[in-house]
Design a protein around this nucleic acid. Structure first.
Lengths: 346, 346
DNA sequence: TAAAGAACTTGGAACGATCCAATTCAGATA
DNA sequence: TATCTGAATTGGATCGTTCCAAGTTCTTTA
């Protein structure tokens, strides 16, 4: 009734219709639309008028087909529920739109079959390039296949296998090393680590940083301090419960990421403990919410928005020069100290 | 060096190449790819083999051009920094991928020019349909123009003007009414409202619900209780500072949304106040993080993921039946009581 | 006055699929 | 043997652009 309407009859206005209306050839219209200086001013004006009058909309698929190009960029994200990735997506998208691209976005939610599907879909649509935050356990073969298809590919955060991809990542180990050292500096000795065990390189690196900081400061890590929990808010709560149940209770916990840390804030609060005074918590990622939680969270700032922007820029560079050597950007994390990491209670 | 490679020579493998290799015509290949039962089993198998052998990838733009269809759906979001919209996006995207669509996503960040640009871009790409969370102050004309282009359009959250669009929204007034009544039930009398003044219908409705609950319970709203702040975490902090400075201090605050509420948690904590005991806070939106903040937040659950899914379903319905009467879905919010809204201190 | 050049403009062949009408070719039927 | 049937296959037009080589005016120059 109300929806399509006038459009039902004439399928759509084409460049040829505009040409007719303006009394020129379709070639001329095409040139006008591309802003070519070859066409006389008045002609161009006339063409543009007819286009508006007819309600013409440019058909980019047809153009792209002929021209064998496109200005769509595929973005594949593994976990949009985590604000880290949401902020990264915002950073990417912003840069791409500014550069005149539009993003084909897909969320895999860590499911490999979905990832496979959306990647082929993006190839079928001839995306100009792809930015991929690989799902957990992505086989390196997938990346190779994708890369082989000839579409420029930038990998972000996780690096499955050791290919020669364009890559944007971060030094995770130095991050947890820093933050753990900070806690030790505050006087903590019994420090727990809340995260996944054996969940791929990023997990390993973050845990290693923690362990290295401990041993380098002469503190032996008690195995039970390393608590295996899923990297979610719920996981954070669970971790806290385990820590509080330990016979000799730690006074601080280094969390795998900010989301886990947020979960611990909720749980510790419910146990009547004031974070930063009764127990120290640190996060990892530097999502925007860390500055405003209760208490504000000491974290490792990974500047997610910046990482996204860097990835987008890298893809744009690659598009400009497809033959250049692989690009790499490894972000050096920064420690941001806030109230959540005070010294242990006397 | 490493990137495109073998693909540089032969631009790309087409259906014709596959046809040649398999010793059939391109029509046959096309039919095979579409899974037509017309083609003999062995022929189909042979064609599929050649396709794989040549590394053929289907060119959906070419197909779509001819077929005048597409399975891209445009999603335009106004504020991805707010987890409410991020969760909604996840809900939509999930549903669309399941239905075999892929999403062209754009984030406007409340900028009208960006919104205009991405919408035309999506039309130029002949998206099969559009889901739009309009930016602030979107002129109703834009929607009409977009709708006029013949692409099915679902509007979400904000409804600029009074068109006959497919719309997914919520009853905001009843939400704040409920939550305010809850606070009154807890014994609060001096209740502030933290949000934008004159920021469009959604703001108005939420404030109205608060005011109605107050007056219906015989409480006169002191004008200064309505605090005008931006709908951000920073805004929440700012609002708290203003409230705490009032000569006769309120004992509770109804926040415009969860993000504002999170800001207040941080700020109140820094003032040494325990939320839920010394001061009551309520949010609005029901984002996932509300269940794990410190303290967990009483909020109005708007089920953002569900709203997204409903919007996607609505678009799918519209695609199936473009001529059907406009669809509307108004979600009834639910009050979720958690620790942040305890009774006032004695 | 003819030739050369500049400034525009244009026809028609791509691009890689779909789709329709037409064709081929067994095997069945008369 | 001639005709018919139905299954399997195919040629060629088409979708809406771009792009190239070529065409048309109109000035300028020798």
């Amino acid at each position: 009734m109300t929806q399509p309407q006038g459009n039902a009859k004439r399928a759509s206005v084409t460049i040829t219709d505009v040409a007719h209306a303006a009394g020129v050839s379709k070639s001329t219209v095409s040139l006008v639309l591309q802003g070519s200086p070859l066409i006389a001013r008045e002609t161009a004006a006339r063409v543009r008028q007819s286009a508006i009058a007819l309600g013409y909309v440019y058909n980019r698929r047809a153009a792209d087909l002929r021209r064998k190009s496109s200005n769509m960029v595929g973005i594949v994200i593994n976990d949009l529920g985590n604000p880290f990735f949401a902020e990264m997506l915002v950073g990417m998208e912003h840069r791409l739109v500014d550069a005149g691209y539009i993003s084909l976005m897909a969320h895999t939610d860590e499911r490999l079959d979905v990832q496979e599907r959306v990647l082929t879909s993006m190839q079928e649509y001839h995306a100009a390039g792809l930015i991929l935050c690989p799902a957990f356990d992505t086989p390196p073969g997938l990346l190779q296949r994708t890369q082989h298809s000839g579409i420029p590919l930038v990998i972000v955060v996780r690096e499955p296998g050791t290919g020669s991809y364009d890559f944007v990542g971060a030094n995770h180990e130095s991050g947890t090393f820093e933050v753990t050292r900070h806690l030790i500096g505050q006087g903590h000795r019994r420090i727990a680590f809340l995260g996944r065990i054996g969940g791929g390189p990023v997990y390993e690196q973050r845990r290693t940083g923690y362990q290295r900081a401990m041993t380098e400061n002469g503190i032996a890590v008690v195995p039970e301090w390393i608590v295996d929990i899923p990297p979610t808010r719920e996981g954070g709560r669970e971790g806290v419960r385990q820590v509080l149940a330990m016979p000799v209770r730690p006074t601080a916990a280094v969390c795998y990421n900010d989301v886990v840390a947020f979960g611990t804030l909720g749980e510790l609060g419910e146990h009547g403990l004031v974070v930063g005074r009764d127990f120290a918590i640190t996060g990892f990622d530097g999502v925007a919410a860390t500055a405003h939680s209760n208490p504000p969270l000491t974290t490792i700032d990974m500047r997610p928005g910046e990482q996204g922007a860097v990835a987008a820029d890298m893809l744009l560079k690659r598009l400009a020069d497809p033959a250049a050597a692989p690009l790499r950007y490894i972000l050096e994390p920064r420690l941001v100290v806030r109230q959540s990491s005070g010294p242990p209670p006397a």
